[in-house]
């Protein structure tokens, strides 16, 4: 039995032999970043490494930082550890971090999903000895409809609003979800996008991902132009006076939590669509089994439940406390 590659330290997930951290939440020397969501990509590190499509996002969010961007599959040697990034299917540039040292392999997957959303490079399941998995939706009640079906429902809701003269307001996280919504609604009419989303659209387009045409709007001044149209905003605008000013609006929240009736009613939006950039129950199991890992660590989400279940089906698992998951909380609250 070889020594473990990973340690869970107060600063974050640590690669012992490589002497670097993955998605640390306290300032460290060297940080490997799985993706651009703010709970995984934090400020204050001396040196960053991530997928090259994540680089512009980090720069938008964290300013002038020292960052190296690499390709999926490209190998970098850090203190004798062979490090490479592999698609996680979560959002643009999202990567699983593979580390190999003397034949032992560990993978930290960050956030991931199995469904192919049409924008993000689909996930690659990487065989390893140690696997770190999220558990945001690790309950068997969370199984998503197919992407085609999700898009169909979304489109038919918007078309119905158009027919009765309502403005469709779609609420989704600015990085990843918003672009999926845009793609799903392509062709239904002009897409109006809050400027916080437009900023991140640039990162997509810089990466060569083609997004539908859109208008950037400022809700303080542009109310007239969006009447009866389509408006996409981030969750931070929910329940604000700014959004309340939009006349004849119907609001839809796009989030995995919307799978459950209680959550839909809690938010009291006019509609809720279970569209998520996280793996559903079956997706989580498919990936974890696919890695053939002999030791699984589960982080952020349903850790206790998932730990117990995986151990029961014969996959040695430990729950680990991290500070990830802010993105999902934002989407919910």
């Amino acid at each position: 039995m070889q020594s473990r590659l990973l340690q869970f330290r107060p600063e974050g997930i640590y690669c012992v032999q490589g002497k670097f951290y993955i998605d640390p939440w306290m300032p460290v020397d060297k940080a490997i970043i799985t993706h651009g969501h703010s709970d995984h990509a934090r400020a204050g590190m001396n040196d960053y490494l991530c997928h090259h499509l994540t680089t512009p996002i980090l720069k938008i969010r964290l300013g002038d930082i020292s960052v190296q961007g690499i390709e999926y599959g490209e190998t970098v040697d850090i203190n004798g550890v062979k490090l490479s990034l592999h698609p996680a299917g979560h959002i643009i540039g999202a990567a699983q971090v593979r580390m190999e040292y003397k034949g032992r392999v560990a993978v930290v997957s960050g956030d991931y999903k199995v469904q192919h959303d049409g924008l993000t490079t689909p996930i690659e399941i990487v065989k390893c000895h140690e696997f770190v998995s999220e558990s945001t939706f690790a309950l068997p009640v969370y199984n998503w409809a197919s992407v085609e079906e999700q898009n169909r429902q979304l489109r038919s809701w918007v078309q119905n609003n158009q027919a009765i003269g309502k403005t469709s307001v779609l609420i989704g996280y600015a990085l990843g979800k918003a672009q999926r919504i845009m793609k799903a609604l392509e062709g239904l009419g002009p897409l109006n996008v809050h400027y916080s989303i437009a900023k991140l659209n640039d990162a997509y387009e810089a990466a060569g991902v083609r997004l539908p045409d859109y208008h950037t709007v400022d809700l303080n001044t542009d109310l007239k132009t969006i009447e009866n149209g389509i408006l996409i905003v981030p969750p931070s605008l929910v329940d604000t006076n700014l959004l309340r000013k939009v006349p004849h609006r119907a609001e839809a929240i796009c989030s995995g939590w919307m799978q459950v009736r209680g959550a839909r009613r809690w938010r009291a939006a006019d509609a809720g669509f279970a569209i998520s950039d996280h793996a559903d129950w079956n997706g989580l199991l498919q990936v974890i089994k696919g890695t053939q890992a002999e030791q699984v660590y589960v982080t952020h989400g349903q850790t206790a439940v998932f730990e117990k279940y995986l151990n029961e089906i014969g996959i040695p698992t430990k729950a680990v406390k991290t500070v990830f998951g802010e993105e999902e909380i934002q989407e919910l609250s």
Binding site: L139, V141, V260, R261, G262, V305, Y309
Partner: peptide
Amino acid sequence: LFQESYAAVGD
């Protein structure tokens, strides 16, 4: 696991 799911869904 059914019970845990039930607790999360509430119905």
